[in-house]
């Protein structure tokens, strides 16, 4: 059992979720409530990682972020280490690769909020930010949570992109999915089985936690605003 790889995977998934949460809310709301020229193009770009083979996506990221690229060079100048084959590079690749998982469920949730509710919030004197916080987020919350759960689970299991952009450097880029593959290559089926089982357990636990969380949230909503003692 490669605990280091597991820790790395969890850290990667956590960072991806943390970075994508604001993107999910902002882009989800934007695409879910506005119509503008070129919206189809933006939605298509967001969808792209879903349909591209991970190795192809990883290959282009490798080219885009590699030492020879402007982005890679700028990163090297700034932080003194390269972007590809590092944990930071992996996080960036993971964020890009998960855009569709992070945005689409949130977009659907924001779309489902009737326009009249937004207008009611405005005519109740709520600024757009206040309306987002007090009305839209509580209603779109299940969609945003779904987006984050998908992102987390997807990151834990991602293989192709990680291998292309990160390689399999222990402690830096060797995630648990890569470690499982390594063990199978080495005919260590027992270790591979253990790690696979752990991954299954974590995935199940994530889903269970999501359900519990959303139940708690809907219970909290009913007590939060203007609760009165029962007569």
């Amino acid at each position: 059992m490669d605990w280091q790889a597991l820790r790395l995977s969890l850290a990667l998934a956590a960072w991806t979720v943390v970075l994508l949460l604001p993107v999910s809310v902002i882009m989800g709301r934007f695409l879910g409530t506005r119509s503008f020229r070129g919206k189809g193009l933006v939605e298509g770009l967001v969808m792209l990682p879903l349909v591209l083979p991970p190795t192809v996506f990883g290959f282009y990221l490798l080219v885009l972020l590699g030492r020879g690229s402007p982005i890679g060079a700028a990163w090297q100048d700034l932080f003194g280490r390269q972007l590809v084959f590092t944990f930071e590079g992996l996080v960036l690749a993971s964020v890009l690769f998960n855009l569709s998982f992070a945005i689409q469920p949130a977009q659907r949730a924001f779309e489902a909020i009737p326009t009249a509710l937004r207008e009611a919030a405005a005519s109740s004197g709520m600024s757009p930010l206040r309306a987002l916080w007090a009305v839209e987020l509580p209603l779109a919350w299940p969609g945003v949570v779904t987006a984050m759960v998908l992102t987390f689970a997807h990151t834990l299991g991602e293989f192709g992109v990680v291998l292309m952009v990160g390689g399999a450097i222990p402690g830096e880029t060797r995630t648990i999915a890569i470690a499982i593959y390594d063990r199978v290559q080495a005919f260590d089926m027992e270790a591979a089985a253990t790690m696979s089982a752990v991954l299954v357990a974590i995935s199940l636990a994530t889903i269970a936690a999501t359900f519990a969380l959303s139940a708690r949230f809907s219970a909290r909503d009913s007590t939060r605003v203007g609760r009165r003692p029962e007569q």
Partner: peptide
């Protein structure tokens, strides 16, 4: 402007009291 909407457009996640209080920010 106080607006009463056709289908009421009440905030479904708030109580009746919360809906009214929400307009008194």
């Amino acid at each position: 402007a106080g607006v009463v909407f056709q289908e009421f457009a009440l905030f479904p996640h708030m109580t009746a009291l919360g809906n009214v209080a929400a307009a008194m920010g």
